[in-house]
């Protein structure tokens, strides 16, 4: 099972819109909140109120500054979690089979009861998507909220990842990227969604939508003065303006 299921029936994943993400961190704490009481061991925090607070998070939002080839620098907020790769190296390196990719939907999971906490999968992941929990001694990672998306105890509209549900700007989209007709697939096609570090051949399922072109002057021609103010003075301007009513 730690071999990859060559093909999966579905390819569930996230599409993250970098043009819309304001970097509010809501997805970060929503993820922490759900998974702290959900799948597997809680996400522990060490030295929570001390000098070096450090805990397990399955989703972190970076903030980058991009200097375009011309024009003003831009800030791009960049959420980072497991991309549920097709060719997931984190799975094949795992000696215990704890790390696996589900054949039905492609979700990459850690079976915590089999995990020996060797950390090799985290080494194999290019995207820093895996964090060893210091308390539990097992590897934690984004579960794509597998305990939400099929959960019959939740109303249908809530059967989506916690981070997607909470995202105030709607920058996070969840769906089947294996189905070219799904909303997420169409979005990816329309907006030129891309892979992270494609050169590493992990074939991520999650896609990122690039920021739209910024500071592009709308080509509106400038406003033409009604008439030559100096010449006609305020009175002339008034007649002309009010003549328009």
């Amino acid at each position: 099972m730690t071999c990859l299921p060559g093909h999966t029936e579905k390819r569930l994943g996230l599409v993250i819109d970098l043009d819309t993400c304001v970097g509010c961190q809501a997805c970060v704490t929503a993820c922490k909140g759900w998974n702290d009481q959900g799948y597997g061991a809680p996400l522990s925090d060490q030295d929570a109120y001390g000098a070096e607070p450090s805990g397990t998070f399955l989703n972190r939002v970076h903030s980058y500054e991009v200097q375009p080839f011309e024009g003003a620098a831009q800030v791009v907020n960049f959420p980072r979690s497991c991309l549920h790769c097709e060719d997931a190296p984190c799975v094949t390196v795992c000696p215990t089979g704890a790390s696996y990719k589900r054949h039905e939907d492609g979700i990459v999971l850690v079976n915590e009861s089999a995990c020996i906490g060797c950390g090799l999968c985290a080494w194999a992941c290019p995207y820093g998507a895996r964090e060893m929990d210091a308390d539990a001694g097992v590897m934690k990672k984004c579960t794509l909220c597998v305990d939400r998306i099929y959960n019959e105890n939740l109303p249908t509209e809530d059967r989506e990842p916690a981070c997607v549900r909470t995202c105030p700007t709607g920058a996070r989209h969840f769906g089947d990227l294996g189905d070219p007709t799904s909303e997420v697939s169409l979005l990816v096609a329309a907006r030129g969604g891309y892979d992270l570090m494609p050169d590493l051949k992990t074939r991520p399922t999650n896609k990122y939508l690039p920021p739209r072109k910024k500071d592009a002057r709308t080509d509106a021609s400038l406003l033409a003065p009604l008439l030559d103010l100096q010449a006609v003075g305020l009175a002339g301007w008034l007649d002309r303006v009010l003549g328009k009513i």
């Binding site: 970098l18 970076h62 980058y64 991009v66 791009v76």
Partner: peptide, 25 residues
Amino acid sequence: ATATGLGSIGTPRVFEQPHTGGNYL
């Protein structure tokens, strides 16, 4: 640039780390 895919816009650099607190990675 390849890690974020932002190379298509220009030259990226870290503005803020996701957490000021440390982490396993």
